[in-house]
Every structure is written in structure tokens, then in C-alpha cells.
Amino acid sequence: MPEPAKCRYTKTHEWVYLDARSAVVGVTEHAQHEIGDVVFVDLPKAGRAVTQGEAVAVVESVKAAFDIYAPLSGTVEASNPALAADPAAVNRSATDQGWLYKLTSVDAAQLAALLTLAQYEEFLKTAA
């Protein structure tokens, strides 16, 4: 599980964690709580090139579907295969087992410009 302080965040409630070879992306605890019980996750396919801010995934809870945006430009390396059978992992473990997809070829400058944990927490206070 990535340490929250080592992740970066977006104002659209995605987290991103840069591991040894790729950037792992998911939705934040705040997002999963607001979205509610997740019943389906539609994830981008490996090899797809995505642009920062592009709607690339859909998370559906009972009655509502939410677009999830790419926090960084890059190429999708893999999506979380476990979510097809267990979409509720997004609720149980948004920042670990409920990760959505991994990106490669990301821009370090884009990553550095995302919110830190402290900035994201401050954003939540003002945006709520």
C-alpha cells in the first residue's frame, strides 16, 4: 500500500503513486465515500495513450456513473484485473487493492505539479 504522503492528488479526487516502473492511479478515500457502493468499474485498456485530464475510466455505484480522469499523460500499462470480479475493492481499499490502472511514460513535471497530501486535504476543506 503506497503511503498517502508519498502519493500526489488531483482536485478531481484521483491519487497517483510513482513506483519503480510506473505510476499507479486510483480514486481517493473521499471519492469512494462520496460515490457510494461501487458495482462496476470500466477501465482503460493496456496500450492506450491518455492525456492529463482526459476522462479515461468510469466508476459506477448504484444509480450513478462517475467519470475518472487521468492525473497524468502517459500510456496505460495495465488495469487492475481484480476489479472486474470485485469492484467493491474500490470501497474497501481505495488506496491499495482498489487501484485502477498503471501508467508508463509519464511526465515528472506533471507529477510534481499535482497536489501533495497536505494540499489535497486543504482542498477538501475548502471544496466541501
Partner: peptide
């Protein structure tokens, strides 16, 4: 949108678009 199967056979179907600026509980919007 989400949800289930709807057979449109005489129903009154309508759509609403609206600002939803802050991520919030869809149950409350509904």
C-alpha cells in the same frame, strides 16, 4: 447513465442536466 433496463412503452421519459460541481453522494442528488 447507470441503473437498469427500462422498456419505453408509453412512459414519460425526460432528462435533466445540472451543475454538479463538487463530488457528492449521488443518493442525495437523486
Amino acid at each position: 447513465t447507470g441503473g437498469g433496463i427500462v422498456h419505453h412503452d408509453g412512459d414519460l421519459t425526460f432528462s435533466l442536466t445540472f451543475p454538479w460541481p463538487t463530488l457528492s453522494d449521488p443518493g442525495l442528488v437523486y
